[in-house]
Design a protein around this nucleic acid. Structure first.
Length: 835
RNA sequence: GCGAAAGUGGCGGAAUUGGCAGACGCGCCAGACUUAGGAUCUGGUCCCGCAAGGGGUGGGGGUUCGAGUCCCCCCUUUCGCACCA
């Protein structure tokens, strides 16, 4: 074989061979154990970036390892192909978004193929084609049938940059998740919603199945769902017949309620203003409070502002009338938009009531406290549970007992009830944009809102459209799209002109891979049954509460409509770290982007992958270093030269398993080499099963290369015979095939093998050969290292003790002192304690 | 503010179960080969010290024969949540 390493030629050669031999093509095979490796599908933005390279290198290492372990591997890829960037580019250049999208897909497909990932490209999908998005529409109709898709008018998040609505999940720190600098504003709009809240409890409960998901992701989802148990309590308002309902999780503190706070947007506010003695002043105050309300601001910890409405509310538990205030920190969208203020036992209420000099009254004391000794008013809010005081008939109860009794009493007397509140809101999916899935609904003057008939799907996105980016649905300007007939009464009607959030597309795409072309249903149930669940999903943490919660929701709906028989689609999730450079996330605006294709051209895909996996463990952020990739290139070169140099001479030599008598006949050098080779294989095998610290796998492979280099002289002198030498080289190349598959196959071929490594079984390490036969044990005297002794690995404790105590350095440190204790830890060390 | 993770040489990182801290790589230093070296190879490289020795995993305390690892307090960084009543 060529003595010079030429990555460009080698990588092209093997990519062609793999494709010609259909090496990555796979089919469901009942009875054969399967493994589904899934990586998050990319948005076709034009070029792959280092984050993709990292994500797909991790997935490929796993897919190749599991493949060599004998699993039937499903390893697909596709394109999250609808979305705003293409549409925005289209607006600028007055071309069609599909032009950008498909040319970007072609480009990025080429780049991924250049990376040599083991994808079954026949399964590639793109979400922007009607064959795919018709099933988004189908799911929508199924949800509509079940009341899980509905339309309502509400205040929504609006990104001025995207010119469209955002779901709550897509608002980060008051800004758009795509435009970190762009403040989200509010609009009142009619929107379609998917009722994810109907599954809130299941999304929580089923987390117990997700034992192989990172705790961090589960915690984030838990917080996002934000389930809390509490009580509704109806206060009566002075001068109004309608009760005011508040929500609290601490009804046990209600005797300490000294005010009621309303969100400035609360519907009652209008009535209060109308019947106020000073309506003008009150309205002005309300507007002032509103403008400082929580939702409208990004920076937090602003002062709490409030205004006294002049009205009072009567606490049904003790009949006390307390003032009603409007407060800027009360959220309309959580609970009822009205709360009881218990300053003694809530920090926010404490802050507010102190500022406005509202009374503060202690009604809970810590267990075991003498209530008479309790400072009242307190110096700060006591928010813990405790025992009730000054709470009428409930005094003396614990918080837990009181909450139960008091909620029960409210229900019995009709002024309240127990309730469960969630932070999660229904998923608003309407987008006032073009490049997405049309929502398959029709508005008929006679019949109202009518779903498109299933047989009439897909509702095709019309190709001829003028994109202006001016904040309303572009489809509304396409008369031939808008004008249709009512599916029910056949009279003229109008189509919905909003499109779906693209997170709908990615909520079920991984099912489609299992039978990507099926035209009669979104998925092929039988094939899904074989491949699911996804055994390993790999992607970035940034999707922890967006995609990863929507996806779980979709699966539960799919289960309920009979498509699948399980509740959770992904058994194991791995979240990789980001690729950063100079301490910052790579981005065009920061100008610190490293282009993978340049790295492929300069070093090859194998070296780029090796560097990506070597520089840090995969879950941690990886700091890009130009010098680092040079080191990876050096390593790949060394391996290449080392194997290429010997490949010819090893032709015809077999590297079989060694039997006991073969082992006994090994030379010392052979033992040393085989020990290292089997240790390396053991490390990598164990690591691939669980830990995935590819950086250490590559490091130990480097050690093997170092040993092989050290032993070159022994090879030349015949002290290492070809069979042992071949074994070590083959282990090295086999391991390398997980991380640098092209050069590995080239070297494997050079060693005389006809089949690519992916068709070879992963070798088993020999624990006996991997074992050390002599160990160097440290000897400590009073915790300080004083000597090292070499002993046989099989040495008894007594032998080790004797050897250690006989060591000259040890004797020096023992002189004049008394040995108190000698601790011998076999295989580890000797620790001598003296006085 | 609350919650989580992390903090180890000049740098990326290793130490998987409480047992030799710094594997492996980068960088640096010295040398070899060379017309040349930004190729390749060899050796060295935690700190102080000529050495013996001493010190050392963010800081302080503790448990232990023994702590990067376990416990307590503090500091810093990153991430998540941030008026969710």
């Amino acid at each position: 074989m060529d003595s010079n390493y030429d990555p460009q030629a080698i990588e092209a050669k093997w990519q062609k061979r793999w494709a010609d031999e259909k090496l990555f093509e796979t089919e469901a095979a009942l009875g054969r154990k399967k493994y589904y490796v899934l990586e998050m599908l990319p948005y076709p933005s034009g070029d792959i970036h280092m984050g993709h390279v990292r994500n797909y290198s991790i997935g490929d290492a796993l897919a190749r390892y599991m493949g060599m372990k004998g699993y039937n591997i499903l390893h697909p890829i596709g394109w999250d192909a609808f979305g705003l960037p293409a549409e925005n580019a289209a607006i600028k250049s007055q071309r069609h978004p599909s032009e950008f999208t498909f040319s970007y897909i072609d480009r990025m497909r080429g780049q991924l193929q250049r990376l040599g990932v083991s994808y079954d490209w026949r399964r590639e999908i793109a979400s922007c084609v009607p064959e795919y998005y018709r099933w988004n529409q189908w799911f929508f109709l199924k949800m509509y049938e079940r009341g899980l898709a509905y339309r309502r008018k509400s205040r929504v998040n609006w990104c001025p940059e995207c010119e469209t609505v955002l779901a709550n999940e897509q608002v980060v720190d008051g800004c758009c998740w795509r435009h970190e600098e762009t403040r989200v504003t509010e609009r009142e709009l009619e929107q379609w919603y998917l009722k994810i809240t109907a599954y809130a409890d299941q999304l929580l409960d089923d987390m117990k199945e997700l034992v192989r998901w990172p705790e961090r992701v589960l915690t984030m989802q838990k917080n996002w769902i934000g389930k809390s148990l509490g009580t509704f309590v109806d206060f009566t308002v002075s001068g109004l017949w309608k009760p005011l309902r508040i929500f609290t999780t601490r009804v046990d503190t209600i005797f300490g309620c000294t005010a009621v706070f309303l969100a400035p947007e609360h519907p009652l506010v209008e009535e209060l203003v109308a019947s106020s003695k000073e309506p003008t002043r009150l309205r002005e105050d309300v507007e002032r409070i509103k403008s400082s309300a929580v939702r409208a601001r990004v920076e937090l910890n602003l002062d709490k502002l409030g205004v006294d409405s002049g009205f009072t509310a009567r606490n049904p538990y003790n009949g006390e009338a307390v003032p009603i205030w409007l407060a800027n920190f009360v959220l309309m969208e959580y609970g009822t938009g009205a709360i009881m203020a218990v300053p003694a036992h809530d920090e926010r209420d404490y802050e507010f009531c102190s500022a406005y000099r509202l009374p503060i009254r202690t009604v809970i004391v810590p267990e075991g406290t003498d209530s008479a000794a309790w400072a009242d008013p307190p110096l700060k809010a006591m928010v813990e549970y405790g025992r009730l005081v000054a709470s009428g008939p409930y005094s003396g109860l614990s918080s837990a007992e009181a909450m139960e009794r008091m909620t029960g009493d409210a229900e019995a007397k009709g002024f309240g009830e127990g309730t469960i509140q969630y932070r999660i809101k229904d998923w608003g999916i309407s987008r006032q944009r073009y490049w997405g899935t049309p929502i398959p609904m029709v508005y008929c003057d006679a019949c109202g809102i009518v779903p498109v008939a299933e047989k009439d799907l897909p509702v095709i996105l019309p190709p001829n459209v003028k994109l202006t980016g001016r904040g309303h649905s572009p489809l509304a300007d396409v008369p031939e799209f808008v004008h249709t007939t009512c599916p029910k009464c056949a009279k003229p009607a109008r189509r919905e002109t909003d499109t779906m959030d693209t997170f709908v597309d990615s909520s079920w795409y991984f099912y489609r891979y299992t039978d990507p072309k099926i035209a009669t249903a979104p998925i092929n149930k039988d094939v899904v049954k074989y491949w699911f669940p996804v055994d390993q999903y790999i992607g970035g943490i940034e999707h922890a509460i967006l995609h990863l919660i929507y996806m779980r929701f979709f699966t539960k709906v799919m289960r309920d409509i009979g498509l699948v028989e399980f509740s959770e689609p992904v058994a194991r999730l791995f979240t990789q770290g980001m690729v950063i450079k100079d301490g910052a996330k790579m981005s065009k605006s920061k100008g610190n982007v490293v282009d993978p294709t340049e790295m492929f051209a300069k070093y090859g895909a194998d070296t780029t992958r090796i560097y990506m996996l070597f520089a840090a463990p995969p879950e941690k952020d990886l700091d890009w270093s130009d010098a680092g990739i040079e080191g990876a290139a050096r390593f790949v070169n060394r391996v290449y030269r080392l194997v290429a140099k010997h490949a010819g001479k090893l032709e015809g030599v077999r590297a079989g398993k060694l039997r006991a008598k073969d082992k006994a006949a090994l030379t010392a050098e052979e033992r040393r080499l085989l020990r290292k080779a089997h240790q390396t294989l053991r490390h990598v095998t164990e690591d691939m099963e669980e830990r995935w610290h590819f950086n250490t796998d590559i490091a130990i492979s480097m050690e093997l290369v170092n040993d092989l280099t050290d032993l070159e002289a022994a090879v030349a002198a015949g002290k290492i015979r070809p069979a042992a030498h071949r074994t070590a080289l083959e282990f090295l190349v086999t391991i390398l095939s997980l991380f640098a598959p092209h050069v590995a196959d080239e070297l494997w071929e050079g060693l005389g093998h006809a089949e690519p490594l992916l068709k070879v079984s992963w070798p088993a390490f020999d624990a006996e050969l991997a074992a050390e036969d002599e160990l160097e044990l440290p000897v400590q005297v009073n915790g300080k290292l004083r000597a090292r002794i070499r002993v046989a690995a099989s040495a008894s404790e007594e032998e080790i003790r004797t050897r250690a105590l006989a060591e000259e350095k040890v004797i020096q440190h023992l002189s004049g002192r008394q040995v108190v204790k000698v601790i011998v830890v076999p295989q580890k060390l000797v620790s001598i304690v003296v006085k």
